[in-house]
Structure formats: structure tokens, C-alpha cells
């Protein structure tokens, strides 16, 4: 479903002193393939380029070199608007900082992607409620303002927002980073069941092995390179 071929990303940051630009090689030739229905964790220490990789996978950014195929199309040289279309129709993001609209209700937050996707008004609420239920948020919170919720509830709203337009890929960057261990576990099992029961493809980014262990496949990344890519099997099946 998605495939990276030798993806590299450089950041040119003008150095403060000498005036000479310093090349910062964040990703150095990353290649892998993720199939539909997989639950993959990308793990690595802070600064190893995980978020940078996720931005490329999420069509928020394009690689400096290499190819990135999404459903068979090379996204690496898409225009801004084409990238926006990929994000709109095929990708759902979950961020560490939730990024909900603070003064809007839960329902309005979840419906926001549908506004940009031109989904008819009558269908939006229905779709949003289904997504919220799948993300495990209780119905009596649907009309609360998003900043009146707890962190765990906010992240469920964010997951619902990522799910609402039935994307083919869900990307979560440190989704438990702002949550305590117990709430984090609940959120992670939500991802697990979304993958297991509804077949969503999920890429989870983390720096903790305990979090990565919820996934069925773990890609380890260090200094912009993949150092390990292994599927977890229990007997014959994915866990």
C-alpha cells in the first residue's frame, strides 16, 4: 500500500556564525513497504528522524530524494494541492499534542475533515458519531467543548477525527506522549482493536519499546537509517 524507496531528507539550515549552510541529513536512504491491514511501530531515539519520516508518509512533506509510493502513485513529486488531496482522502493523523480546536465541540472537531472533503452536511454528524464510538468515546461527551475533556478523552477525539473519513492509513506520532501510562494503554488498545477488528492500517511512532510492542511489526530507526525491521509472530499469526 505504501512503499519508500531510498527516501532521504536533508534540511539546509544556515549556520549562525560562518554564514555557510550546514547540510543536516535527517533521513539517509530509508526503504520499506507497508501492506494494507498492518499495524507498524516505528521506534527510535529522539532526534533519529521519526517525525520527519512520518511527515513524508503523511504527505505533509516530500523527500529530498528517493521515491514514495502511495497506492502505487509516486507522491514524492506531488504539488501542494495534490498532497493536500492525499491527506484529505487517504490519511488520518493523530498527534502527540492532540491539536483539537479548543472552543469547538467534540462533534465539530471530528466533523472538520469532512468539511474539507465536501461530505454532505446530513452525513457528517452520522459519520462523526460512528468514528467517535469506534474510538471509544462515551456518547455523553459528544457535545462537550474539546477543552473540557481529559487528555485520554482528547486523544480519542483526535483518533475519531483521524478515522472519520475512512482513510487507508492512520499515522500516529507519539500518541501517548502526553498521557499517563494507564490512559496510554487504553489509547493503545484502541489502536489495536481498530487494526484487528476493522482492518485499519496503522503506523505508530514512539520511542518506547513498551508502546511499540502493541504493534505487529517494529521498524527501528537510528540516525536516519533503518537498523531493524521485524514482524512479530505468535505461532503462525499476527498477535
Amino acid at each position: 500500500m505504501i512503499e519508500c524507496k531510498n527516501v532521504s531528507k536533508n534540511y539546509k539550515s544556515p549556520s549562525t556564525g560562518s554564514g555557510q549552510a550546514i547540510e543536516n541529513l535527517v533521513l539517509k536512504g530509508v526503504s520499506f513497504k507497508i501492506n494494507e491491514g498492518e499495524f507498524v511501530a516505528i521506534i527510535g531515539p529522539s532526534g533519529s528522524g521519526k517525525s520527519t519520516l512520518m511527515h513524508i508518509l503523511g504527505a505533509l512533506d516530500t523527500p529530498t530524494s528517493g521515491e514514495y509510493f502511495f497506492d502505487g502513485k509516486n507522491v514524492a513529486d506531488f504539488s501542494d494541492d495534490e498532497l493536500a488531496d492525499v491527506r484529505k482522502n487517504k490519511i488520518g493523523f493523530v498527534f502527540q499534542a492532540f491539536n483539537l480546536l479548543p472552543r469547538a465541540t467534540v462533534l465539530r472537531n471530528v466533523m472538520l475533515p469532512l468539511v474539507y472533503a465536501n461530505v454532505p452536511k446530513e452525513k457528517r454528524e452520522e459519520q462523526a458519531k460512528v468514528a467517535l464510538k469506534n474510538a471509544g468515546l462515551e456518547e455523553d461527551h459528544f457535545y462537550h467543548l474539546s477543552n473540557q475533556l481529559s487528555g485520554g478523552q482528547m486523544q480519542r477525539v483526535a483518533i475519531a477525527r483521524a478515522l472519520v473519513n475512512n482513510p487507508s492509513l492512520i499515522l500516529a506520532d507519539e500518541p501517548t506522549g502526553n498521557l499517563d501510562t494507564k490512559t496510554g494503554e487504553i489509547v493503545l488498545s484502541t489502536f489495536q482493536s481498530l487494526n484487528k477488528e476493522q482492518g485499519h492500517t496503522i503506523v505508530l511512532i514512539t520511542h518506547e519499546m513498551s508502546v511499540a510492542n502493541y504493534a505487529n511489526r517494529i521498524i527501528q530507526i537510528k540516525d536516519g537509517q533503518i537498523i531493524k525491521d521485524e514482524k512479530k509472530y505468535e505461532g503462525d499469526r499476527f498477535i
Binding site: 494541492d81 493536500a84 491527506r87 484529505k88 482522502n89 498527534f95 491539536n99 474539507y116 477525527r161
Partner: peptide, 16 residues
Amino acid sequence: TREIGLRKAIGAKKKD
């Protein structure tokens, strides 16, 4: 700024 980033992430175009 964050809200704008989010809107873009969920598919808003420059024009929007």
C-alpha cells in the same frame, strides 16, 4: 498557527 497546521494536515488547501 497550530490550528492552521492541523487544518492543512486534514486536507485544507492553501486556497481554503
